[in-house]
Design a protein around this nucleic acid. Structure first.
Length: 803
RNA sequence: GCCGGCAUGUCGGAAUUGGCAGACGAGACAGACUCAAAAUCUGUUAUCCGCAAGGGUGUGUGGGUUCAAGUCCCACUGCCGGCACCA
């Protein structure tokens, strides 16, 4: 037997070789393949084995594409703005730029241990002024197109972080980052009008090769619905309350209305008798945090004392206030049809409001209604001239009827809301806007970008809602770019999402200071062919990136509308019992020691072998011994056979082709865990053949080539030992010999009455009678004289049914 | 509550999509090598009955379709993730 495999020496040798002889080169002829990882936030904790897994998956896929003859775009960068660096600065007094740079250094070291073929010439960092110049530039373009606007609105306020939060950052009423209960605060906020793109964001999902799950989540997040806006006159006043409804067909059944307490008409509806109660209810709702409002399932409400007129039948219906109506969806007011809506039904029952059924169930009116009838099908009743119409048809026609009658119109609505884009924080891109007393909000001229983030003494949020930047007078005070008069800079910064919404465009032209990206380069290398990352970004990051790309398409920066053609979500790696790896749980496994003890190749393969890549997997350190033993066994197999000059037999040729076929199929279907087990199986088979007579070099070489994307170092070494020319990655992806894959004999199972009783060897081309009689012979003792049925599925199975 | 996903040996997980359940690996047990241990190699390892040959049972639960069900259908249970009164 040859020398033992020394992973440290071999891995070091090939790391140096690749540095001198790059394997991913653009000769201008190869088709490009852009494989992108979701870039990391450079946390001080470094990477754990879960982060590693995503990068290994993308590297295996990239190397496979490389061997298939592509030029790879496989870049890496840093999403480095954000709260943790700032909080660390507050705690330790270290500038975020300093701690971030340190963290990047450490994580880059860890990423290099993976031996992924990232092109570091393409590296980007969202905190680099040369990068955020363009993040700011995009904002200015959006401002010019009216997509960035200021709005005074009640925003979510985290009293602990002392900062505003986007709706998306509030998780069940609590701050996404610190877990504190979120309250509300009125602040002037920069907003991005993502809702202007709602239809395109929804409709274009069809074009994407993404997991259905993610598409569905985005669809629901956008939440498009079709209905009508209807005006209800307030009794005794000239004003009307406009409501949005998806069920205009049930208009005759509207027996009351409910307004959100925040609705601007709410305070005006109170009468002398109800004023105290109404004002109390409005105050209470305003003070309630989102948590209380959500936890209290029991509906609350107060009658205003005012009435509205149902425009269809002229009925006087009471107007109520309740916090189950949301101020910021639809019009903040609803018409209530208790007979056909669960929530309205519950409310009507509780407050004893009449219930009028307008759609017949099974052709009849329901006696003693106990729950709302929510089906949109059935004939209309109690509905004047609509009686007898089919409700599902009326639902479509009603908006037009209403429009003709002049008290409403058809309307589309979305759950998607505009994006709150300002943060009262230091560590983010300054929003490039100047507030001039005369000219209003004016963008910083493009030639003055980047508007760099100044140094501050104190990073703490001010607690008043202002950013720490507000304290730097010489930065805040400036001249208006339009009129030249004294003006003040915007002091809010952008959210972390700003940079990550477009970074993938910058990789291919990361040093360009004239344009965000050169058009020719963007056309040549983009869009991204494969995007790999965690499912936690299914909605926000992926939706924002799609929005940005569509906007940049509209202003002619790029010539494609969707950034990511294919998406793969890898599962999480958890600790024992599926517990998420976290510092506080003390179950974080660092890859560093494993790389040192077992080598990069072993860890790469174990990251894949631990479970199906798309599912969560429990990490168990002991499992890595299995793949490590496999690599050593394969090494020993090569050592045994390298000088033997074994002739290629038919059997070996068949095994070789099966190996290529199996690995390629599993790899193509992203079943990376079974690729690894496939390697083990074939290695075991070859070991047995080696003991008998030996294994030919061509087979071992093919094995090494297939192994290369997974365990690149050992594959290179073995390929070289076996006399391969140059890098194994230049050898192309092996092809299976179709002729050798054809098998003539096969062992199949024989079932009697569905129970497996024997196996027989058959000629795959044998006819049914031949196979059946062979089966009868093999399983004769189970047969009776009364044979009911004989089934032969060619090449698969025999089943004989007898009584 | 709604929408997804999952459920297979002691453990992680396979099963060509309806065709021999438990591949591959971990762990455990036994043996070889060794003064000894580690490493390595060989074997056993779902479960029940049986000395054995052999047979029965078995993929969360209950039913169904089928020659044949881990896989399809119906009902249910448990766990994980997402959304949370969206009119």
């Amino acid at each position: 037997m040859g020398e033992q495999y020394n992973h440290a020496a071999v891995e070091d040798k090939w790391t140096k070789y690749w540095a001198k002889n790059p394997i991913n080169v653009n000769d201008g002829k190869k088709p490009k393949y852009y494989c992108l990882d979701m870039f990391p936030y450079p946390s001080g904790n470094g990477l754990h084995v879960g982060h590693w897994r995503g990068y290994v998956i993308s590297d295996v896929w990239s190397r496979y594409k490389l061997m298939k003859g592509h030029y790879l775009i496989h870049p890496m960068g840093w999403d480095a703005f954000g709260l943790p660096a700032e909080n660390y600065a507050i705690k330790m007094g270290i500038h975020p730029a300093v701690s971030t740079a340190e963290n990047i250094k450490n994580i880059k070291r860890q990423i290099n241990q993976i031996a992924a073929i990232y092109d570091w010439d393409m590296e980007v960092n969202t905190t680099d002024p040369g990068f955020y110049k363009w993040t700011q530039w995009i904002f200015v373009q959006m401002f010019k197109k009216g997509l960035a606007y200021e709005k005074e609105m009640p925003i979510n306020w985290c009293p602990s972080c002392k900062t505003g939060l986007a709706n998306e950052e509030v998780v069940s009423g609590k701050c996404e980052r610190c877990g504190a209960d979120v309250t509300k605060k009125d602040l002037k906020q920069w907003m991005l009008k993502i809702t202007a793109y709602a239809d395109r964001l929804l409709d274009d999902l069809d074009k994407l090769d993404w997991p259905e799950k993610v598409k569905k989540m985005q669809t629901e997040w956008i939440g498009r619905s079709y209905g009508a806006e209807v005006d209800f006159k307030i009794d005794g006043r000239d004003e009307a309350i406009t409501v949005y409804t998806t069920r205009p067909d049930t208009l005759y059944g509207a027996t009351f209305m409910v307004l959100a307490p925040e609705h601007k008409l709410s305070p005006t509806l109170a009468t002398d008798e109800t004023r105290a109660a109404v004002e109390q209810y409005i105050t209470d709702s305003a003070n309630k945090s989102n948590v209380d409002r959500l936890q209290n399932k029991e509906k609350t409400g107060v009658f205003t004392g005012s009435y509205a007129i149902n425009p269809m039948n002229g009925a006087k219906i009471p107007i109520w206030l309740s916090d189950y109506v949301l101020a910021d969806y639809g019009t903040g007011a609803i018409m209530c049809v208790p007979a056909h809506d669960d929530r309205d039904f519950e409310f009507a029952k509780k407050f004893d409001i009449p219930i009028v059924q307008v759609i017949a169930k099974d052709g009849k009116e329901i006696e003693n209604m106990e729950e709302a009838y929510t089906e949109a099908s059935g004939l209309m009743i109690n509905s004047g001239d609509w009686n007898g119409m089919e409700s599902s048809e009326l639902k479509v026609k009603a908006p037009h009827i209403i429009e003709e009658k002049g008290f409403g119109h058809a309307k589309k609505n979305y759950k998607l809301r505009d994006w709150v884009f300002s943060r009262q924080r230091y560590w983010g891109e300054p929003i490039p806007i100047v507030h001039c007393p005369k000219c209003g909000a004016v963008p910083v001229p493009e030639e003055e970008l980047p508007l760099t983030l100044p140094d501050v003494e104190k990073y703490e949020p001010t607690g008043t809602g202002e950013s720490p930047l507000a304290a730097i007078e010489e930065w805040v005070n400036c001249k208006c770019p339009v009129c030249g008069e004294a003006a003040k800079r915007e002091t809010n910064t952008m959210p972390q999402w700003a940079g990550s919404s477009w970074y993938f465009l910058r990789y291919v032209d990361n040093k360009n200071d004239k344009e965000l990206v050169d058009k020719a380069k963007a056309h040549e290398y983009l869009p991204v062919d494969m995007y790999i990352g965690g499912v936690e970004h299914a909605v926000l990051h992926l939706l924002y990136s799609r929005f940005y790309t569509k906007f940049l398409y509209d202003i002619g920066v790029v010539d494609f509308e969707e950034p990511f053609k294919k998406l793969f979500n890898q599962g999480m790696v958890t600790g024992k019992n599926g517990v998420k790896m976290s510092k506080s749980m003390g179950n974080v496994v660092s890859p560093d020691d494993l790389v040192r003890d077992y080598g990069c190749d072993s860890l790469r393969m174990y990251e894949l072998f631990v479970g199906p890549p798309e599912l969560d997997s429990e990490w168990d350190d002991r499992g890595i011994d299995g793949v490590n033993r496999f690599l050593n066994r394969f090494w020993n197999l090569v050592m045994e056979n390298k000088d033997k000059d074994v002739a290629e037999t038919e059997e070996l040729k068949t095994i070789r082709s099966q190996l290529v076929d199996t690995i390629t199929k599993r790899l193509e279907s992203f079943s990376l865990n079974t690729v690894v087990s496939g390697f083990m199986e074939f290695s075991n088979t070859l070991s047995k053949l080696s003991a008998k007579g030996g294994v030919d070099k061509e087979t071992l070489k093919t094995f090494a080539r297939l192994l290369a994307p997974f365990a690149p170092h050992i594959a290179e070494e073995i390929y070289e030992i076996l006399g391969g020319e140059g890098s194994v990655f230049a050898s192309g992806w092996p092809e299976a010999d179709a002729a050798a894959l054809v098998v003539n004999t096969k062992e199949i199972a024989v079932q009697i009455n569905g129970k497996m009783r024997a196996t027989i060897k058959i000629d795959v081309n044998a006819d049914k009678d031949t196979v059946i009689s062979a089966a009868k012979e093999a399983a004769g003792k189970w047969l009776t004289d009364n044979i009911v049925k004989e089934i032969y599925v060619p090449g698969k199975i025999v089943n004989i049914v007898c009584k």
